[in-house]
């Protein structure tokens, strides 16, 4: 059995299995990390988003092979950070959450955006969210949540 090692939420982990698996399944089944969700299974909805080397990727179309030696952070790991607290408070305050199924992915997309661009404008936020579908909110309050997170977290990203 091949052995794939990677850093998962700050811990070095090893998976003994074929490399031909979706990262999403590995996270949910081998590590019981159910924050990343399966919404569409084909990279369209972003509910499965995680950070690969600090950047958002869709874990449903990332092969396990591609994370060998890399660093993965899921919402479970990210939720221990100060940045998360700011994003969480902003989403709560601005009404960015309804059914919640897309929300962990939205938070990951927000972190990936703000990590690169701490002061995004409206258009940049919309582009950054373009791979994360939400059916409940029409995005209006999610956009406002991210604007608030950027403002409240000034200097943290």
């Amino acid at each position: 059995m091949p052995k794939i090692e990677f850093k998962l939420n700050d811990k070095l982990v090893t998976v003994h299995s074929t490399a031909n698996r979706r990262l999403l399944d590995v996270l949910r089944e081998d590590f019981n990390l159910t924050g990343p969700k399966e919404g569409c299974g084909e990279g369209e909805c972003g509910a499965c988003a995680v950070l690969l080397n600090h950047k958002i990727v869709n874990s449903c179309c990332t092969p396990l092979a591609n994370v060998d030696g890399q660093e993965i952070v899921t919402i479970e790991g990210f939720s221990k950070t100060k940045r998360y607290q700011i994003i969480k408070d902003a989403f709560a305050e601005m009404g960015g959450v309804q059914c919640g199924f897309c929300t962990p992915g939205m938070v990951i997309a927000t972190e990936s955006l703000l990590n690169k661009n701490p002061h995004p404008n409206d258009e940049e936020i919309r582009i950054a969210l373009s791979g994360n579908l939400c059916r409940c909110t029409g995005y209006n309050m999610i956009i406002k949540s991210i604007q608030k997170a950027a403002k409240d977290g000034d200097g943290i990203w």
Binding site: E29, G41, E42, G43, N58
Partner: peptide, 16 residues
Amino acid sequence: GTDMLIQNRSHSGMNI
């Protein structure tokens, strides 16, 4: 893998 995983999908939880 973003195209290949979709083209070779099976089912949730199963190998590609």
